[in-house]
Amino acid sequence: MNLVVYILKKDVMYDFLLDIKNKFETYVPIKKDITRFKILDNPKDIDFSENSYFPVKEHFFRKKEVIFQFNGSNFLPVELKSKNKIFFGLRRCDLNAIKNQDFIFMKQHNDPYYTSQRKKAVLIGYHCTKALNKYCFCESMNLTDYYDLMLFDKTNYFLVDAKTEKGENLIRKYKKYFKKSNYKISDKDTYIKTRKINKKDISKFYDHKDWDKGINLCLSCSACTEMCPTCYCHEIHDNTEINNPRNAKRIRSWSSCQLKEFTSVAENHTFRDTKEARFKHRIYHQLQYFKERNKINLCTGCGRCITGCPTKIDWVKIINEMR
């Protein structure tokens, strides 16, 4: 936490947004049938009542990414185009999800495609005051502060905390909208009460029969992984032009561990052939495998995999009820 926090009045916020809109591609949560992050048009559309249905993952780890182009004998450089983007109103869980993806694509691996998108983005958070829905469980996921700017909602105004150089610069540039304050942000401001997972270590529950409660409802539709802000599994395929098959592109696209094709190899052998194994793989990867390797939870407790599930499999409840 910084010693100096800023105050941004709510009516001033609209002017601020209209101002940054000229310089940045500004994404804000807008509620229509569901809440989505969309390019800002009218600041009055902003809606903080619920979390966005889809995460902003697709802006950095894109659904389809051309890894390279090939002209039959040489690799052609891929132009990594990116715009200056501002994401306004990200929740703590989503910010941590971006942190985890930064860790994977920028720290562990030096992925130029992700980095080029991510480097130019400014993340402005909006701190939840209470649990957003009955499914989220971020309290037990040890979330950290990871943002450029964070807004704390104080009914008439926002307290703004800057965490990074990027955030400080933005405030400096638009300082006419911000007022300095002596307020100290305490745990009271950052605490969000949600439900919890009551087990620290789920490794010994792998063969527990209660998993069947979830597995029996699972349709292997992979909605959970498509909506997850942290899922980073992907596949790589080649594509060619129809009139000139030597011109090729290698394309990286999202893939889902809930599908059989995820582990099927030549001669139609599938390693994770059963729905049971696939269902548990996702949960164990989120809660255990990633933690074992990297000491952080991959899951950030946003609950999207449950809200987005067609059969609403509440795996947190299943884990909590295991004896």
């Binding site: 249905y53 889809f54 909605a223 889902s256 094709e261 987005g308 067609p310």
Partner: peptide, 28 residues
């Protein structure tokens, strides 16, 4: 191609029709 319709539907950022009580066969 064997992925369910849900994969593409979510990628197209649609709201879930099942949540709106419409009988959608997308998941299967």
């Amino acid at each position: 191609y064997n992925n369910p319709v849900c994969v593409e539907c979510k990628r197209n950022n649609n709201s879930c029709l099942l949540d709106n009580k419409k009988p959608c066969l997308g998941p299967i």
